[in-house]
Design a protein around this nucleic acid. Sequence first.
RNA 1: UCCGGCGUAGCUCAAUCGGUAGAGCGGGUGGCUGUUAACCACUAGGCUGGGGGUUCGAGUCCCUCCGCCGGAGCCA
Length: 432
Amino acid sequence: MEWVYIKDLKNYVERDVELRGWVRRKRSSGKISFIEMRDGSGFVQVVIEKSTVGDDNFAQADKLRLESSLIVRGKVRKDERAPNGVEILANEVIPVQIPSEDFPIQKPDHSIEYLMDHRHLWLRAKRQFHVLRIRDAVMKAIRKFYWERDFVQVDTPIFTGAIGESAGNLFEIDYFDYGKVYLAQTGQLYLEAACMALGKVFNLGPTFRAEKSKTRRHLIEFWMNEAEVAYYEHEDNIRLQEDLVYYIVQYVLNNAYDDLIAIGRDVSKLGKVQKPFPRMTYTEAVEFLQKHGSDIKWGNDLGADEETTLSKQFDSPLFVTHYPRHVKAFYMQPDPSNPEVVLCDDLLASEGYGEIIGASQRIHDYDLMIERLEENNLPIDKYDWYLDLRQFGSVPHSGFGLGVERTIAWIAGLEHIREAIPFARTLYRIHP
RNA sequence: UCCGGCGUAGCUCAAUCGGUAGAGCGGGUGGCUGUUAACCACUAGGCUGGGGGUUCGAGUCCCUCCGCCGGAGCCA
C-alpha cells in the first residue's frame, strides 16, 4: 500500500493509502472513534469504526493517547463534515509507540513559561507548525531574491576576533591555548571584504549579542541577512532594501497564505505594503515627534516608543535616514552636504514592530576611517585587514543587515519574537 | 544593569479583613456509531517555589534567596 502525506490526500479520493504520523487529538465512543492525525505535512481526521476494523484492532486503537505515533491504513473519503474535505476510514490502525505518560501540552491553555520549558514538544502544536512554515518561506524568499539578482552567497565566520561595531556585547569563547575568540555579532566587515572580490554579496546566518535585553523584540542568538555591494551608494542601498522587503512580503503572501490565515494574521495589512516605502530624515522625524508631544532633542537616538509612533503613521515600512553620526557606528559615510549626519537608514516595520533593517554607506577613505576609529577609541591594530580594504582599490560601497526573526514576527503578526525561531535563546533561557 | 509583575493539584486559575485548600481542564473507571476544546456519571489528586520572621493562627503580612514574565537602555 502506498505511503502518502496528508497534504496530498485530495489526489487519492476513494483509494486505499497508508499514513504515518501522530495522534493530535482523540474523541471516542463505544463503537466509533475519531483521531485527528498529523504527519508534518498537514492534519486529517481518521474515523475508526469497530464494525470495520474488528474488535481487537478497535481495542488496540482505543489505547492510543495524545502524541502516540501510529500508522493508519484506510480509504480516503470525501466528507462534507471533515474540515478539509477529506477524511480516512481506517481499515487498520498500527500503533508505533504509545507514551506511558500524558503529553504535557493538552489544551491551548498554558503559560508562556510552561510552553517555553516544553518547546521541543510545543513545536508540534498547530500554531507553531504554521509559524515555522512561514519562517521557512521567509528564508526561501531571501535567498531567491538575491540569487535572482546575481548576488553571491558568502558565508561569514561565526568565530571572530574582537572586531565589530562595539566590543561590549560580545560572547567570549576559550580558543584552546591561544586566548579568546568571540561569537560574531555581524558579518558586515567580512562582507565588505567579499564585495570587493565578488561585487554583490549576501549572507544568511546566526549572530550573537551579549545584551541583557528582555523585550519582545530581542534574542541573544538571532539570524541576520546582510548584503553588501561595491559601488553602491546610499540611494542604491535604500532601493535594494525596499525591493528585498517587498519581495519577501509578496513571496510569503503567495507561498504561505494558508499558514498566515491559519494563525489569524490580518493579511489585508500585508496587502497594503506598497513601493516606494515612505521616507523621513532623522531631522524630520524629530520635528514630527516634537509636534506630537515628545520632548526628544536633536542628537538623541530614537527610542522604542518614538519608533512605534513614527511607523504607525504608515501602512508600509518606514525609512528613517541621515541620523546624527554620534548615535551611529564608526564606519558610516558622512553626508557631503552635512557632515554632522551620516548616509544611513533604519527601516521600521509597520504596525509598531520596530527596526528590521540597519543600513549605511560605508566609509571608503582610508584617512577618514582612521580618524573615526581613533575617535571611538577602537584598537586600530585589530582593524588591520579592514583598513587594507581602503588601501587597495577602495570604492564607495553600501550594505545593510535585516533581522530575520523581527521580519518574521512582523509578517506573521507575532506578539513575541521568540515564536519566530524554533529554539529561542533569550536572556536566562537556553533549555531546551 | 534598572523598574514592575508573578510563583497555590499534572495544567490554567480562585481562595473576601490573617481563621478548616477550591474549580475547570487533564488523568483513572464505566457509558455512548458522527465527534470537532465531544458529551454524561463516578473517582484519585496538595510540603501553597526554598529558607527565616511576626502572630493564638500565614496561601495571605515582613525579610531573604531562587525561578519565570513584561518593560527600559542597546540593538536587528
